[in-house]
Each structure stands twice: as structure tokens, then as C-alpha cells.
């Protein structure tokens, strides 16, 4: 009943034989041990599982691993290069855009995608674009600031 898949995850080629009903998020967390991608709701509402699939932000709890066959996947673990934080990660730290940290990986992945789609977004746009990511700790105030600061750093 196993089915073979292969994809590139954080720059490395991976392949495995999996139960066809395996969700992408479970494949990343269980098969690959990439536990930075979180599951907060199982219904594609909270956004904690957001990753990049071929450069686009997607919710990994709402995709089968099979649907990512042959794709290029980036998770939160793949953002920091050579030990340096990605500018968006650095902005979240600098602006105190995280508290418990559970929504944070998904929030950061969404924020990067947001900035790529809306460079120079204003506050209203940022808030509207973060609609798919729930945070219960920060009240979003410092997340919005972090996205603005991260966007500025990414454009440099």
C-alpha cells in the first residue's frame, strides 16, 4: 500500500515510500523530523503549518504529501543560511513579534510570501494578508511591525 514520492526539502533531495493518505505536514514532521512546522487546527484555518511549495506559501496540513511529489519545499528550518537569520526571522526577534513561538514558523513563512507578493505593503494590506494565520499571544501588533521591518530589510 506504500507509494513512492520524492521531493526537494530545504535544498536536499528526499524520497520515501509512504501511506498515500499521509499529509504533507506529517511527512515533514514524522518522516523527515522537521518539527518546526506545526499543526494547530487540522482544518487549514490557523496557518501554523505554513510552508513554501515551489516558492508559494501553502498550508501543509491541507495537502497530501503526494501533491508535493517532485516539488521544491522550504520549511522554517531552511530559512536561515550559514547560521544567519533570514531578514524576516531577524525582524520578528527585533520587534518581539513572537511569544509562545507556536504560530511563529507559519507566520514567518506567510510573511515572506506576503512581502514577495506585496512589496511595500501598508499596514492594512499586511493585516489583511495575515488573515490566514492565527496568533493568540501577540495581538498581532508586533507581528505587523516585524513584517514591515522584515520587508524593508528584504528589499535591501
Amino acid at each position: 500500500m506504500g507509494i513512492a514520492i520524492s521531493m526537494t526539502v530545504n535544498g536536499a533531495a528526499v524520497s520515501a515510500e509512504i501511506d498515500p493518505r499521509t499529509l504533507l505536514v506529517d511527512f515533514l514532521r514524522v518522516n523527515l523530523g522537521l518539527t518546526g512546522t506545526h499543526v494547530g487546527c487540522d482544518t487549514a484555518q490557523c496557518g501554523a503549518c505554513t510552508i513554501h511549495l515551489d516558492g508559494r506559501a501553502v498550508k501543509a496540513c491541507n495537502l497530501l504529501a503526494l501533491q508535493a511529489n517532485g516539488a521544491k519545499v522550504t520549511t522554517i528550518e531552511g530559512l536561515a543560511g550559514n547560521g544567519d537569520l533570514h531578514p524576516m526571522q531577524a525582524a520578528f526577534k527585533e520587534c518581539h513579534g513572537l511569544q509562545c513561538g507556536f504560530c511563529t514558523p507559519g507566520m514567518v513563512m506567510s510573511a515572506i510570501d506576503l512581502v514577495q507578493r506585496h512589496p511595500g505593503a501598508d499596514e492594512a494590506t499586511i493585516r489583511a494578508q495575515l488573515e490566514g494565520n492565527l496568533c493568540r499571544c501577540t495581538g498581532y501588533h508586533n507581528i505587523v511591525k516585524a513584517v514591515q521591518q522584515g520587508a524593508a530589510a528584504m528589499s535591501r
Partner: peptide, 10 residues
């Protein structure tokens, strides 16, 4: 604590 949360190492 932020670095581990921001890099998926929590």
C-alpha cells in the same frame, strides 16, 4: 528564547 522558536528548533 527567540532563536529556537524562529528557526523551528523549539
Amino acid at each position: 528564547e527567540d532563536r529556537r522558536f524562529l528557526t523551528g528548533a523549539g
